[in-house]
Computed example of a mutant assay.
Amino acid sequence: MTYLLKDVCLHDNDDGRSPMLSALVVNKATREPSDQFSTLARTEPFTRPADWTWQDEQQQVFAHHH
């Protein structure tokens, strides 16, 4: 699943600047994304800052696709 979500994040987003669509994919029990999501967000080309949260990314997805 990790590779599929990475592909979704990279779709039309080669430079990593657009919000990561996989921020919408959360675990039913925890209501949070997997640890792999945060790891991906901090690697190239995404490189989100240290104070970044997945909730911020999720809000950016909603705003971007509104």
Rank of each mutant, 00 (worst) to 15 (best):
residue 4 L to T: 07
residue 5 L to V: 00
residue 5 L to W: 04
residue 6 K to E: 15
residue 7 D to C: 14
residue 7 D to I: 04
residue 8 V to Y: 05
residue 8 V to S: 03
residue 9 C to L: 00
residue 10 L to E: 14
residue 10 L to F: 05
residue 10 L to K: 14
residue 10 L to I: 04
residue 11 H to K: 15
residue 12 D to Y: 07
residue 13 N to E: 06
residue 13 N to H: 09
residue 16 G to S: 11
residue 16 G to K: 07
residue 18 S to H: 12
residue 18 S to Q: 14
residue 18 S to F: 08
residue 20 M to W: 01
residue 21 L to N: 09
residue 21 L to H: 05
residue 21 L to S: 04
residue 22 S to W: 01
residue 22 S to D: 07
residue 23 A to F: 01
residue 24 L to M: 14
residue 24 L to C: 13
residue 26 V to M: 12
residue 26 V to D: 00
residue 27 N to G: 01
residue 27 N to Y: 05
residue 28 K to Y: 12
residue 28 K to C: 06
residue 29 A to S: 14
residue 30 T to E: 09
residue 30 T to W: 02
residue 30 T to M: 06
residue 30 T to P: 04
residue 30 T to K: 11
residue 32 E to K: 15
residue 32 E to Y: 10
residue 33 P to V: 11
residue 33 P to F: 10
residue 33 P to R: 07
residue 34 S to I: 00
residue 36 Q to F: 12
residue 37 F to N: 02
residue 39 T to E: 12
residue 39 T to F: 05
residue 40 L to N: 10
residue 40 L to A: 11
residue 40 L to E: 08
residue 40 L to P: 00
residue 42 R to D: 00
residue 42 R to S: 13
residue 43 T to D: 09
residue 44 E to H: 10
residue 45 P to H: 08
residue 45 P to G: 09
residue 45 P to E: 11
residue 46 F to T: 01
residue 47 T to R: 11
residue 47 T to A: 00
residue 47 T to L: 12
residue 48 R to T: 01
residue 49 P to M: 07
residue 49 P to E: 11
residue 49 P to C: 08
residue 50 A to T: 12
residue 51 D to I: 04
residue 52 W to M: 05
residue 53 T to A: 07
residue 53 T to K: 07
residue 54 W to S: 06
residue 54 W to A: 04
residue 56 D to C: 00
residue 56 D to H: 08
residue 58 Q to K: 15
residue 59 Q to E: 15
residue 60 Q to V: 00
residue 61 V to M: 06
residue 61 V to L: 10
residue 62 F to C: 06
residue 63 A to K: 12
residue 64 H to D: 11
residue 64 H to S: 13
